[in-house]
Design a protein around this nucleic acid. Structure first.
Lengths: 337, 337
DNA sequence: CTGAAAGCGCTTACAG
DNA sequence: CTGAAAGCGCTTACAG
């Protein structure tokens, strides 16, 4: 049977309230008494019963704020599902998540959402931050625990970053081209070059080719700013400039536009395509055999784990084991989509 | 604020005990009173607070038995980790898992473990059953909820089967050979032909080749009885009989032996290899570039979900949404191992 | 600085 | 067939 506060109280010859004060570092306990209690806690390896704790704390309803730049980004759908799944599990513990979505690169909007949630008295904030100094400064003023999800921001004190291993995603993309054993000439379509994640995917792609000495040549990297229109144009231009091209790695957003360009030039199924994530158009083209594979980053797990980490911290005060929880790189082919 | 038993009791003009009897179908309540309570429960969409329930029930400590044929099967390591992770989460709810491991095809041993656990008064049983009538009969006598994990047994009343989609695994293996675009001649090494899962992998492999019209020819299926020695011999024989072979799909156990045969014949990196799961030797050979890819079945998730499903049922009486929880088919290459 | 009491929302005997 | 009370293990005011 597990140790309880009551037992500790009896052993220390004090009331349960006093034990509680010590265990939760609430202060106001005579040093000598505190030491006595701490010793017993240590010796008996006391671990509070979270279920009892949750029930007792239910009255002081805790809110967790969540801000995802999901408005123009279908990728976040599954992240949201993950957040909601964990929310269901913790609601009986007296927790509640407040989800706000924003547009992708709108700093003003993100700042506004942060302030809104703070006004609602959130106990913690989970967000996919825009990498800007203004956001960073605001977050550092906040004084509540922060978890970043999917994309990170440097110089901000946080519990943890939950997201994917972008470098690995690039490695794996190269890996797939590599196992074909063919002498590929690959073009890369990427998003905004300021986005760290995109660059790391490309970096990983290049590193793997070098390390493995795959007979793969990268003929160029074209930017599309994550929009479908620019992506269409960039892809078209690339294919026209390089008719020798045998494959494309779409390392960021704007995949739908890029696919259209490949289609318009009659090159579907002739050029080997590898993409990232599974938005609808990727799914469709994977099923039709136009895309060979897509590299995914467990969006559901990202949402679920970020929320779990925040909950665990607010419940127990325990920080996560790692400051960067990286989800698995998942490869989807036609038949395991 | 969520509805509570107390509120319902007040509205129905009865005591909380009576509401509890109705909600949990404990009987012994006048029909008329029961109907009144049920109506209110319905209208207010009452959902019991699981945290409170867990705390209250803590005294009636519930045991969940787990039997895995893990003794000679390294695959189960991660299944066990999954069980243990969920166990940690539910211990504060008054639950405890009792894990027993057995050898692979030892019916006597599995029967013995079942009886041992029943003697310990388990409230539910999770197991990877041997597909035999004696086991089936014993399980059907048990009268406690059952969840099968990783491998299933027909004609046994159960909550759910948690395991992988073997057919899909075969499809994906073919998919990977397929995207190389090469005219492969593939040999298949499988385990005991009586094991349903192995056969389904092969079946999926064949179906995908046909559906996709991949230029792939299957030159033969060799059995190895899941042992490394037989696997070595079978693989060697196959390679000698078929020097034209360009790839092998290892669809079951005994992979280590098979790899040795490929190595001894000097064919590592010349023949494209696809395996299943990630035991140590697979990992090693994947990293060395000898295996192109391995198809995994989320063993950790299998253990975790099986335990979660059992816990949910014992806590709430709710059966899972599905009678077959299939884990995702995961593909591991060198760089996402 | 410390204790006694009440409460979180449910279940479990016990009494009638 | 039903109710009143106690309890699961913790926290929260309140009183002193």
């Amino acid at each position: 049977m597990a140790v309880t506060v009551k037992q500790i109280a009896e052993m220390a010859g004090v009331s349960r309230g006093t034990v509680d004060r010590v265990i939760n570092n609430r202060g106001g306990v005579k040093k000598e008494v505190e030491d006595r209690i701490r010793k017993i806690v240590e010796q008996l390896d006391y671990k509070p019963n979270l279920v009892a704790k949750g029930l007792a704390k239910k009255s002081t309803n805790k809110k967790i704020g969540v801000i995802l730049n999901a408005h123009d980004n279908p990728f976040y759908k599954d992240v949201i599902l993950g957040v909601e799944a964990k929310d269901k599990e913790i609601v009986d513990f007296g927790f509640e998540t407040l989800l706000r979505t924003t547009h992708c690169y709108d700093i003003e909007e993100q700042l506004k959402r942060i302030d809104e949630l703070v006004a609602e008295d959130i106990a913690g904030l989970i967000l996919s931050p825009i990498n800007s100094e203004r956001i960073a400064n605001r977050l550092n003023e906040l004084n509540i625990p922060i978890v970043t999800v999917n994309t990170d921001i440097p110089d901000v004190t946080k519990l943890c970053y939950v997201g994917s291993d972008y470098l690995q995603a690039g490695y794996v993309a190269a890996n797939i081209f590599g196992i074909t054993g063919r002498r590929h000439k690959i073009g890369i379509i990427t998003g905004n070059k300021l986005i760290l994640g995109h660059n790391m995917r490309i970096e990983g792609f290049k590193q793997a080719i070098q390390q493995e000495q795959y007979p793969i040549e990268i003929i160029g990297v074209y930017e599309n700013d994550d929009t479908d229109i620019k992506s269409y144009l960039a892809t078209k231009q690339m294919l026209e400039e390089h008719p020798e091209l045998t494959g494309i790695f779409f390392a960021a957003g704007g995949i739908e536009g890029g696919l259209k360009a490949v289609e318009d030039l009659g090159l579907l199924k002739k050029v080997m395509l590898i993409t990232v994530d599974t938005i609808e158009s990727v799914k469709k083209n994977l099923l039709e055999g136009n895309i060979a594979a897509t590299i995914c980053q467990e969006p559901y797990v990202q949402g679920y784990e970020a929320t779990k980490i925040m909950f665990d911290f607010l419940m127990t005060g325990q920080s996560p084991d790692t400051i960067a929880y990286l989800t698995k790189t998942q490869i989807k082919f036609k038949y395991n989509i």
